[in-house]
Protein backbone atom coordinates (compact mmCIF):
# COMPACT_ATOMS: atom_id res chain seq x y z
CA UNK A 1 0.00 0.00 0.00
CA UNK A 2 2.74 2.42 0.97
CA UNK A 3 4.62 1.48 -2.15
CA UNK A 4 1.69 2.03 -4.46
CA UNK A 5 1.05 5.39 -2.91
CA UNK A 6 4.64 6.43 -3.39
CA UNK A 7 4.77 5.56 -7.07
CA UNK A 8 1.47 7.16 -7.90
CA UNK A 9 2.65 10.34 -6.26
CA UNK A 10 5.98 10.23 -8.03
CA UNK A 11 4.30 9.88 -11.40
CA UNK A 12 2.13 12.88 -10.85
CA UNK A 13 4.98 15.16 -9.86
CA UNK A 14 5.05 17.53 -7.01
CA UNK A 15 3.37 20.89 -7.34
CA UNK A 16 -0.12 19.60 -8.16
CA UNK A 17 -1.37 19.21 -4.62
CA UNK A 18 -4.36 21.46 -4.83
CA UNK A 19 -5.70 20.54 -8.22
CA UNK A 20 -5.13 16.80 -8.22
CA UNK A 21 -8.62 15.69 -7.32
CA UNK A 22 -10.43 17.86 -9.81
CA UNK A 23 -8.29 17.12 -12.82
CA UNK A 24 -7.77 13.44 -12.36
CA UNK A 25 -10.68 11.07 -12.60
CA UNK A 26 -8.47 8.22 -11.36
CA UNK A 27 -8.07 7.31 -7.71
CA UNK A 28 -5.51 9.81 -6.48
CA UNK A 29 -3.12 9.58 -3.57
CA UNK A 30 -5.96 10.41 -1.20
CA UNK A 31 -7.98 7.57 -2.65
CA UNK A 32 -5.21 5.08 -2.01
CA UNK A 33 -4.87 6.34 1.53
CA UNK A 34 -8.55 5.93 2.18
CA UNK A 35 -8.90 2.58 0.45
CA UNK A 36 -7.89 0.11 3.20
CA UNK A 37 -9.87 1.81 5.95
CA UNK A 38 -12.95 2.41 3.87
CA UNK A 39 -12.98 -1.08 2.40
CA UNK A 40 -12.85 -2.61 5.86
CA UNK A 41 -15.50 -0.19 7.07
CA UNK A 42 -17.70 -1.08 4.11
CA UNK A 43 -17.34 -4.75 4.93
CA UNK A 44 -18.18 -4.05 8.56
CA UNK A 45 -21.14 -1.77 7.94
CA UNK A 46 -22.73 -2.33 4.54
CA UNK A 47 -22.73 -6.12 4.73
CA UNK A 48 -24.39 -6.18 8.16
CA UNK A 49 -26.80 -3.48 7.00
CA UNK A 50 -27.94 -5.58 4.06
CA UNK A 51 -28.11 -8.61 6.32
CA UNK A 52 -30.23 -6.62 8.76
CA UNK A 53 -32.70 -5.66 6.03
CA UNK A 54 -32.88 -9.24 4.77
CA UNK A 55 -33.37 -10.54 8.30
CA UNK A 56 -36.21 -8.14 8.97
CA UNK A 57 -38.20 -9.82 6.19
CA UNK A 58 -37.34 -13.35 7.24
CA UNK A 59 -37.57 -15.93 9.92
CA UNK A 60 -34.02 -16.72 10.94
CA UNK A 61 -33.06 -20.28 11.75
CA UNK A 62 -29.88 -20.96 13.62
CA UNK A 63 -29.95 -24.69 14.18
CA UNK A 64 -28.24 -26.76 11.52
CA UNK A 65 -26.57 -23.84 9.86
CA UNK A 66 -27.81 -20.26 9.51
CA UNK A 67 -30.85 -20.06 7.25
CA UNK A 68 -33.26 -17.27 6.29
CA UNK A 69 -36.85 -18.11 5.35
CA UNK A 70 -38.61 -15.17 3.75
CA UNK A 71 -41.82 -14.30 5.55
CA UNK A 72 -42.57 -11.01 3.84
CA UNK A 73 -43.85 -8.25 6.08
CA UNK A 74 -44.59 -10.49 9.06
CA UNK A 75 -41.97 -8.97 11.35
CA UNK A 76 -42.93 -5.46 10.39
CA UNK A 77 -46.64 -6.09 10.89
CA UNK A 78 -45.79 -7.38 14.34
CA UNK A 79 -43.53 -4.41 14.97
CA UNK A 80 -46.29 -1.92 14.30
CA UNK A 81 -49.00 -3.75 16.21
CA UNK A 82 -47.02 -4.89 19.26
CA UNK A 83 -48.45 -2.89 22.16
CA UNK A 84 -45.52 -3.82 24.42
CA UNK A 85 -43.22 -2.47 21.77
CA UNK A 86 -44.96 0.90 21.76
CA UNK A 87 -44.65 1.04 25.53
CA UNK A 88 -40.95 0.33 25.15
CA UNK A 89 -40.57 3.21 22.72
CA UNK A 90 -42.44 5.48 25.12
CA UNK A 91 -40.16 4.39 27.96
CA UNK A 92 -37.14 4.91 25.73
CA UNK A 93 -38.23 8.44 24.97
CA UNK A 94 -38.83 9.21 28.64
CA UNK A 95 -35.47 7.68 29.56
CA UNK A 96 -33.79 9.60 26.75
CA UNK A 97 -35.35 12.95 27.62
CA UNK A 98 -34.70 12.55 31.35
CA UNK A 99 -31.09 11.43 31.06
CA UNK A 100 -30.03 13.81 28.32
CA UNK A 101 -32.04 16.67 29.85
CA UNK A 102 -30.60 16.21 33.34
CA UNK A 103 -27.11 15.76 31.94
CA UNK A 104 -27.37 18.98 29.95
CA UNK A 105 -28.71 21.02 32.88
CA UNK A 106 -26.27 19.62 35.45
CA UNK A 107 -23.36 19.62 33.02
CA UNK A 108 -23.89 23.27 32.11
CA UNK A 109 -24.29 24.08 35.81
CA UNK A 110 -21.04 22.38 36.71
CA UNK A 111 -19.26 24.08 33.81
CA UNK A 112 -20.51 27.50 34.93
CA UNK A 113 -19.33 26.80 38.47
CA UNK A 114 -15.92 25.60 37.31
CA UNK A 115 -15.68 28.59 35.02
CA UNK A 116 -15.65 30.86 38.08
CA UNK A 117 -12.91 28.87 39.74
CA UNK A 118 -9.54 30.17 38.72
CA UNK A 119 -7.17 28.24 40.92
CA UNK A 120 -7.22 24.45 40.79
CA UNK A 121 -9.76 24.30 38.00
CA UNK A 122 -7.81 21.61 36.18
CA UNK A 123 -7.61 19.33 39.19
CA UNK A 124 -11.31 19.79 39.92
CA UNK A 125 -12.22 19.10 36.32
CA UNK A 126 -9.98 16.04 36.25
CA UNK A 127 -11.73 14.61 39.30
CA UNK A 128 -15.19 15.41 37.96
CA UNK A 129 -14.41 13.74 34.64
CA UNK A 130 -13.58 10.36 36.13
CA UNK A 131 -16.99 8.66 35.78
CA UNK A 132 -16.86 9.10 32.01
CA UNK A 133 -14.09 6.53 31.68
CA UNK A 134 -15.76 3.87 33.76
CA UNK A 135 -17.23 0.90 31.91
CA UNK A 136 -21.04 1.36 31.92
CA UNK A 137 -21.52 -2.26 32.99
CA UNK A 138 -19.33 -1.65 36.04
CA UNK A 139 -21.28 1.53 36.75
CA UNK A 140 -24.45 -0.53 36.71
CA UNK A 141 -23.03 -3.19 39.02
CA UNK A 142 -21.64 -0.56 41.36
CA UNK A 143 -25.07 1.10 41.35
CA UNK A 144 -26.57 -2.21 42.35
CA UNK A 145 -24.13 -2.47 45.24
CA UNK A 146 -24.82 1.07 46.40
CA UNK A 147 -28.60 0.67 46.28
CA UNK A 148 -28.83 -2.82 47.78
CA UNK A 149 -31.55 -2.69 50.38
CA UNK A 150 -29.57 -4.49 53.09
CA UNK A 151 -26.02 -3.18 52.78
CA UNK A 152 -26.00 -0.46 50.10
CA UNK A 153 -24.40 2.83 51.09
CA UNK A 154 -27.02 4.96 49.32
CA UNK A 155 -29.86 2.77 50.55
CA UNK A 156 -28.49 3.32 54.07
CA UNK A 157 -28.41 7.09 53.54
CA UNK A 158 -31.96 7.04 52.18
CA UNK A 159 -33.06 4.95 55.14
CA UNK A 160 -31.70 7.69 57.35
CA UNK A 161 -33.84 10.15 55.40
CA UNK A 162 -36.91 8.02 55.87
CA UNK A 163 -37.10 6.04 52.62
CA UNK A 164 -36.78 2.31 53.08
CA UNK A 165 -37.93 0.52 49.97
CA UNK A 166 -36.02 -1.80 47.68
CA UNK A 167 -34.78 0.80 45.21
CA UNK A 168 -34.29 -1.48 42.21
CA UNK A 169 -37.31 -3.55 43.18
CA UNK A 170 -40.04 -0.99 42.63
CA UNK A 171 -40.84 0.33 39.15
CA UNK A 172 -40.58 4.08 39.73
CA UNK A 173 -37.52 4.03 41.96
CA UNK A 174 -35.78 1.53 39.67
CA UNK A 175 -36.39 3.79 36.69
CA UNK A 176 -35.10 6.78 38.65
CA UNK A 177 -32.05 4.80 39.74
CA UNK A 178 -30.99 3.78 36.24
CA UNK A 179 -31.56 7.34 35.01
CA UNK A 180 -29.36 8.66 37.80
CA UNK A 181 -26.63 6.11 37.09
CA UNK A 182 -26.56 7.26 33.49
CA UNK A 183 -26.55 10.88 34.64
CA UNK A 184 -23.67 10.13 37.02
CA UNK A 185 -21.61 8.69 34.22
CA UNK A 186 -22.26 11.19 31.43
CA UNK A 187 -22.84 14.61 33.03
CA UNK A 188 -19.07 15.18 33.05
CA UNK A 189 -18.99 14.96 29.25
CA UNK A 190 -21.44 17.87 28.96
CA UNK A 191 -19.52 19.82 31.61
CA UNK A 192 -16.25 19.27 29.74
CA UNK A 193 -17.64 20.40 26.38
CA UNK A 194 -19.50 23.38 27.86
CA UNK A 195 -16.43 24.52 29.77
CA UNK A 196 -14.40 24.41 26.55
CA UNK A 197 -17.07 26.57 24.94
CA UNK A 198 -17.10 29.05 27.83
CA UNK A 199 -13.32 29.33 27.80
CA UNK A 200 -13.41 30.16 24.12
CA UNK A 201 -15.61 33.23 24.62
CA UNK A 202 -13.10 36.05 24.27
CA UNK A 203 -12.26 37.87 27.49
CA UNK A 204 -12.91 41.17 25.68
CA UNK A 205 -16.53 40.24 25.02
CA UNK A 206 -17.13 39.51 28.68
CA UNK A 207 -15.34 42.70 29.72
CA UNK A 208 -17.40 44.76 27.31
CA UNK A 209 -20.53 43.23 28.77
CA UNK A 210 -19.35 44.07 32.26
CA UNK A 211 -18.62 47.68 31.34
CA UNK A 212 -22.09 47.97 29.86
CA UNK A 213 -23.43 46.97 33.25
CA UNK A 214 -24.38 43.40 32.46
CA UNK A 215 -23.86 41.03 35.33
CA UNK A 216 -24.69 37.63 36.71
CA UNK A 217 -27.73 36.21 35.04
CA UNK A 218 -27.73 38.87 32.31
CA UNK A 219 -24.19 38.05 31.20
CA UNK A 220 -25.21 34.44 31.10
CA UNK A 221 -28.44 34.96 29.22
CA UNK A 222 -27.34 37.53 26.67
CA UNK A 223 -23.60 37.09 26.29
CA UNK A 224 -22.39 33.61 27.25
CA UNK A 225 -25.25 31.40 26.11
CA UNK A 226 -25.58 32.89 22.62
CA UNK A 227 -21.81 32.67 22.22
CA UNK A 228 -21.72 28.98 23.08
CA UNK A 229 -25.06 27.88 21.61
CA UNK A 230 -23.32 25.89 18.89
CA UNK A 231 -21.09 24.19 21.43
CA UNK A 232 -24.14 23.27 23.49
CA UNK A 233 -25.82 21.86 20.41
CA UNK A 234 -22.79 19.70 19.64
CA UNK A 235 -22.80 18.47 23.24
CA UNK A 236 -26.50 17.66 22.98
CA UNK A 237 -26.09 15.74 19.73
CA UNK A 238 -23.00 13.82 20.85
CA UNK A 239 -24.73 12.82 24.04
CA UNK A 240 -27.97 11.97 22.23
CA UNK A 241 -26.37 9.53 19.86
CA UNK A 242 -24.53 7.78 22.65
CA UNK A 243 -27.64 7.71 24.80
CA UNK A 244 -29.36 5.51 22.26
CA UNK A 245 -26.25 3.38 21.78
CA UNK A 246 -25.66 2.30 25.35
CA UNK A 247 -27.94 0.22 27.48
CA UNK A 248 -25.35 -1.70 29.52
CA UNK A 249 -26.37 -0.03 32.77
CA UNK A 250 -29.97 -1.22 32.52
CA UNK A 251 -28.89 -4.63 31.29
CA UNK A 252 -26.79 -5.37 34.38
CA UNK A 253 -28.98 -3.66 36.98
CA UNK A 254 -32.65 -4.36 36.33
CA UNK A 255 -32.50 -6.21 33.01
CA UNK A 256 -35.65 -4.37 32.00
CA UNK A 257 -37.56 -5.11 35.17
CA UNK A 258 -39.28 -4.77 37.57
CA UNK A 259 -42.48 -5.39 35.63
CA UNK A 260 -40.87 -4.03 32.45
CA UNK A 261 -40.47 -0.60 34.07
CA UNK A 262 -36.99 -0.10 32.60
CA UNK A 263 -37.39 -2.11 29.42
CA UNK A 264 -36.23 0.38 26.84
CA UNK A 265 -36.02 -0.57 23.15
CA UNK A 266 -32.40 -1.82 23.02
CA UNK A 267 -33.03 -4.05 26.04
CA UNK A 268 -36.14 -5.48 24.39
CA UNK A 269 -34.15 -6.01 21.21
CA UNK A 270 -31.49 -7.98 23.07
CA UNK A 271 -34.08 -10.04 24.80
CA UNK A 272 -35.87 -10.75 21.52
CA UNK A 273 -32.68 -11.66 19.73
CA UNK A 274 -30.63 -13.50 22.30
CA UNK A 275 -33.12 -14.90 24.77
CA UNK A 276 -35.99 -15.84 22.44
CA UNK A 277 -33.73 -16.05 19.36
CA UNK A 278 -36.34 -14.28 17.24
CA UNK A 279 -33.68 -12.62 15.12
CA UNK A 280 -36.04 -11.53 12.33
CA UNK A 281 -38.17 -9.44 14.64
CA UNK A 282 -35.06 -8.13 16.39
CA UNK A 283 -33.75 -6.99 13.00
CA UNK A 284 -36.91 -4.97 12.39
CA UNK A 285 -36.48 -3.27 15.77
CA UNK A 286 -32.81 -2.68 14.97
CA UNK A 287 -33.65 -0.97 11.68
CA UNK A 288 -36.08 1.35 13.42
CA UNK A 289 -33.39 2.32 15.94
CA UNK A 290 -30.93 2.84 13.12
CA UNK A 291 -33.31 5.27 11.41
CA UNK A 292 -33.43 7.32 14.59
CA UNK A 293 -29.66 7.47 14.96
CA UNK A 294 -29.17 8.38 11.31
CA UNK A 295 -31.53 11.28 11.85
CA UNK A 296 -29.30 12.53 14.67
CA UNK A 297 -26.16 11.98 12.62
CA UNK A 298 -27.71 14.00 9.79
CA UNK A 299 -28.40 16.90 12.16
CA UNK A 300 -24.86 16.71 13.53
CA UNK A 301 -23.26 16.82 10.09
CA UNK A 302 -25.55 19.61 8.94
CA UNK A 303 -24.61 21.62 12.00
CA UNK A 304 -20.93 21.14 11.27
CA UNK A 305 -21.59 22.20 7.69
CA UNK A 306 -23.21 25.41 8.81
CA UNK A 307 -20.19 26.16 10.95
CA UNK A 308 -17.88 25.21 8.10
CA UNK A 309 -16.23 22.44 10.08
CA UNK A 310 -16.48 19.58 7.62
CA UNK A 311 -14.00 21.32 5.39
Amino acid sequence: MAHAAETSAAVRGSAQLKSTGRKEPRVGFEGWMMAPGLLLLAALSIVPFIALIAMSFSRVRLLGGVKLDLVGLGNWARFFTDADMWLSWLRTIIFFVLTVGLEMVLGIGIALCLFRVLRGRNILLGLLLLPMFAAPSIVGLLGRYLTDSTFGLYAWVLRGLGYSGDILGAPVSAFAAVVLMDVWEWTPLIALITLAGLSSVPQSVREAAAVDGARGWMTLRYILFPAISNVLLVALLIRSMDAIRYFDIIWVTTNGGPADATKIVPVRLYETAFRFFDLGYAAAIGLAMLAFSIFIARTFVRLLDVRGLTR
Partner: peptide, 14 residues
Protein backbone atom coordinates in the same frame (compact mmCIF):
# COMPACT_ATOMS: atom_id res chain seq x y z
CA UNK B 1 -23.50 6.42 15.56
CA UNK B 2 -25.35 3.23 14.66
CA UNK B 3 -26.91 1.77 17.80
CA UNK B 4 -24.93 -1.21 19.06
CA UNK B 5 -28.08 -3.30 19.25
CA UNK B 6 -28.73 -2.74 15.54
CA UNK B 7 -25.19 -3.84 14.67
CA UNK B 8 -24.99 -6.82 16.97
CA UNK B 9 -27.94 -8.67 15.45
CA UNK B 10 -26.67 -9.02 11.86
CA UNK B 11 -23.07 -9.41 13.00
CA UNK B 12 -24.15 -12.30 15.20
CA UNK B 13 -25.55 -14.05 12.15
CA UNK B 14 -22.50 -13.30 10.00
Amino acid sequence: MAPIAAVVVPLFLI
